[in-house]
Design a protein around this nucleic acid. Sequence first.
DNA 1: GGAACTTGTAACAAAGTGTGTCGGGACGGC
DNA 2: GCCGTCCCGACACACTTTGTTACAAGTTCC
Lengths: 246, 246
Amino acid sequence: METRVSDPSPHILVVDDHRDIRETLARYLIKNGLRASTAENAAHARKALKAASVDLVVLDIMMPGEDGLSLCRHLVETGAMPVILLTAMADDTDRVIGLEIGADDYVTKPFNPRELLARIRAVLRRTSLAPRERDPIEQELLHFDGWSLNVSRRELKDADGTSVALSSGEFQLLCTFLKRPKMVLNRDQLLDLTTGRTPAVFDRSIDNQVSRLRRKIEADPKDPKMIKTVWGGGYMFTADVKDQAE
Amino acid sequence: METRVSDPSPHILVVDDHRDIRETLARYLIKNGLRASTAENAAHARKALKAASVDLVVLDIMMPGEDGLSLCRHLVETGAMPVILLTAMADDTDRVIGLEIGADDYVTKPFNPRELLARIRAVLRRTSLAPRERDPIEQELLHFDGWSLNVSRRELKDADGTSVALSSGEFQLLCTFLKRPKMVLNRDQLLDLTTGRTPAVFDRSIDNQVSRLRRKIEADPKDPKMIKTVWGGGYMFTADVKDQAE
DNA sequence: GGAACTTGTAACAAAGTGTGTCGGGACGGC
DNA sequence: GCCGTCCCGACACACTTTGTTACAAGTTCC
């Protein structure tokens, strides 16, 4: 009755070009019951976001290469992922820009880890319960091989328009694939991305879910065309995915 | 700008240390047929309360100097003056404290002026200081999948316009969903948001209310389209919600 | 006080999911 | 090709979560 599958501890991605900062911070977060990953620049951060399920990003605004701000903008615009910015100084400009772009909070360096932790918790609480603004209802519709998946309605329809019921696990798995087409994902990644769990020793749950999903969406589940098995590597979604507004 | 001698329209005092917020809000209230005054801190608020007949106070809980909470406590204890709190964030602590002290309602910043107006009217009506509105312009109407819910009248109508009776628990649950569409809410959150209770060990009351609500609003309660179950996670309202003036 | 209604609790049925096992197939060395 | 080893698909089964019904306690309104 204790550890429920539904709430694995939140996963924080720390993006900072200073190694000591990001590692210390990650250790501190983990010690306090969160999960944490690190990335040293925007490019690595993007990869990490694709490969694992992240609940919140702590982002240094001043980084070489792609600017932290542009990554932040991207995150806020696309994924509705909460972002906390780290700014070098208590510079009002940074602050205003950051909050304007849509960052959920910001912390100035040098910061107190405990304060940052408190803000992380506050943002997570807020984003998980705050009433939704009622403006842009974006119908996320994903098309692949005649199928169409309405992500916000959790509805899958075949070429004829008849809807096929998906269980939560199947829906989650399909979403994971559709967001990362033509990309080999191993079982651990899939498990993390779909449920947030860490793999057991001999974990066959992903195999099972893949099998169940294939039975529903493959013409011939024995000879899958969309969800291909990569021997020794995991699975890969091979169909073309087009997202298209309604 | 405000005092017309025998004007029965309710008088609202807005107390907030941010000038732009209180002025914008006051203008908005006036534009919508109320009288409004402003105060930038607790001391000014006390003076204003002595100087004019005020029907309701909108109070920022976070202010320098005398705390908003202490003013709130004073108001509630002495004058039976209705108070609506503004809180900086959806912070449970603030909320609990505020309602414990006796505030009549609370709104989290950033807030929708229209929502605040609706709550002001609701509180005034409740405390029976305001006559019934003459024209129901500001009835909050929420539309979803052919249905429409009149929040202030607690009235649900289907596509044909025939109304369906909801119990208060069902109404509360529906409101909670409509305010947070496309968002997974677990049972504890739903219980808190609808009743404010803390969950019992094996609490199935939410399941039951969901089931009852589905029976009323889903075309096929066995295959619900709007209130989807997230296995291991809770429930999610998947229909598009549009709010629309009458 | 009683009827109608609402709501929480218990109990059972149904669905979703993870684990274990078995057998077939892929891979690599011969 | 042959064969051992490992990986994967499928199935059965246990277990958890959820849907639904029934019922009792509480409430409201005559």
